[in-house]
């Protein structure tokens, strides 16, 4: 396994008028290629800020963020847009699909920003939709799909440019437990079969157990970082 993400002593301070609110107070994390990581913590613990920095949506106030060996924390907005397009797939709690736009067109969206030709783009989108199990729903609009199906479309959209990692922010937060299980099974399959690196934010322990590594945030610091024994056979043996 090679190193995908290296976060070194990252601080993030938000200014609210005169008051400075520290959201991250010195976080250092290394994530290898192919890992499945759950980022946990209560709201206000800094986990969302951490994800925004990993997703090239926000600058760290200090510290460094290396993605595939390249320092990216201080790049420009345009360079970040390019990185998000090529290397990062986002999955959100609210699905965030374009309304009144068919499933396949939603999946094509990231490819529109990197000059994929029309026909190749469409075929690639169909392939990825088939991969997430929606090969028969490609022309449905988001409001014609169930929550679980919408989230599958979002996952397909995240995968379509063959990113280095998927950042999923509470992907099951709007879903019932049965559907949540299906979505988590899909993530596990992508991780195992495709070797996709997945970083998942959640506050539900039931969801976090699907990940092989759990990072716990509290008050802007990492308070625990451990491998998950529950995922037997996949976890590295500990304490033997």
């Amino acid at each position: 396994m090679s190193e995908l993400i290296r976060v070194e002593n990252v601080h993030k301070i938000y200014r609210m008028g005169e008051v400075e609110v520290p959201a991250l107070r010195g976080v250092s994390v290394v994530i290898e290629r192919g890992e499945f990581v759950a980022v946990m913590g209560a709201s206000g613990s800094g986990k969302s800020t951490f994800m925004n920095i990993l997703g090239c949506l926000d600058h760290p106030t200090s510290g460094k963020y290396f993605l595939e060996g390249e320092e990216v924390g201080s790049l420009s907005r345009n360079e970040w847009a390019h990185l998000r397009n090529k290397r990062i797939g986002f999955v959100f709690q609210g699905f965030n699909l374009l309304a009144r736009t068919s499933a396949v067109e939603n999946v094509e969206l990231p490819m529109m920003y990197n000059g994929y030709a029309g026909k190749r783009r469409h075929e690639r989108a169909l392939d990825v939709l088939a991969l997430v199990g929606l090969g028969n729903r490609v022309d449905h609009l988001p409001n014609q799909l169930s929550g679980g199906q919408q989230q599958r479309v979002a996952i397909a959209r995240a995968l379509v440019n063959r990113p280095s990692l998927i950042l999923a922010d509470e992907p099951t937060g709007n879903l019932d437990s049965a559907t949540s299980g299906e979505i988590m099974a899909l993530f596990e399959r992508l991780n195992v079969e495709q070797g996709m690196t997945i970083i998942l934010v959640t506050h539900e322990p039931d969801i976090a157990v699907h990940a092989r590594r759990q990072i716990q945030f509290k008050d802007g610091l990492v308070v625990s970082d451990r491998l998950n024994e529950a995922v037997t056979g996949l976890a590295q043996p500990q304490g033997i």
Binding site: G55, A81, H82, R84, F90, N96, A99, N161
Partner: peptide
């Protein structure tokens, strides 16, 4: 706004 956010998240530059 949310459409703009989605487009930016998947790689649209400000110019786009």
């Amino acid at each position: 706004t949310s459409e703009i956010g989605i487009r930016m998240a998947v790689g649209a530059r400000g110019r786009d």
